[in-house]
Design a protein around this nucleic acid. Structure first.
Lengths: 126, 126
DNA sequence: TCGGTATATTCGTATATTCGTATATGTTTG
DNA sequence: CAAACATATACGAATATACGAATATACCGA
């Protein structure tokens, strides 16, 4: 056995777009990480999990989005190491365990307190 | 006095897609902020400016991308408050003045030290 | 093993974002 | 004022990303 808890979810090898592997610069990686954080649904999930661990069903209800979408986004977050998940019976329990994720959200939130209006109207991020 | 240096750059009111204004949740705003950070060129610019302030020409040469693209991305970063810019003669000098931007990049970089491989291969962020 | 519950994955389509190229604006100098 | 330099903006094409709907998989209890 190589991996204990956060094993890589089998994210479907269908998409031929993810070669990535080698020649990826630090800037590319940072950008990817920030993009993983750059979706409202994923941010909402993280915010909810910041409080306490929750099942997918809990999150589906809290967010009010279809279960498939929630699972997909949780899969992304988990794959990237931003949340952890463990199975308990037939349900999956997700949580934010990395303090740095908490910090990223906290700092970003602080930035927004100063620049919310600007960020809200930036024409580049649609 | 409300704002000292970082005034809103006239980002061209052509694009009719940015209504935004009111009903935008905290999650939406956070996601937008992270998306502003979620581009390799913009990250590269921030990283370069982290060191010391630089002109657009400097950045164009350092990044190796066409000037138009650099300006566009700088405009986005500036609009969102992530960099500041001042004109000196015929050139613009950009800088990162907000410590929190530094922190965001630093923490994200730390996360990558643990999860670079995962982030690099996440199928959701292409 | 079967049915039901909980979660994960696939896929086509709609939308968002980036890029390259061309052009416009602002600033200094001759 | 014209020319040159530095930067900003516009725009169509290419690509990336999110979504809804449908389906597949995992687990539990009878």
């Amino acid at each position: 056995m190589t991996i204990s808890s956060s094993q890589q979810p089998s994210v479907a090898s269908s998409s031929p777009a993810v070669s990535a592997g080698a020649g990826m610069s630090e800037a590319d990686l940072l950008a990817r990480l920030f993009r993983a954080l750059g979706d409202p649904t994923r941010v909402q999930l993280l915010t909810l999990l910041l409080d306490h661990e929750q099942t997918v069903s809990d999150l589906v209800e809290a967010v009010g989005a279809p279960q498939g979408r929630i699972s997909t986004h949780l899969g992304c977050l988990r794959w990237c190491g931003l949340v952890t998940g463990r199975r308990e019976g037939r349900q999956m329990i997700y949580a934010v365990t990395d303090q740095r994720v908490r910090d990223l959200l906290s700092i970003a939130s602080a930035v927004l307190r100063d620049y919310a209006a600007q960020v809200a109207t930036c024409g580049v991020v649609g």
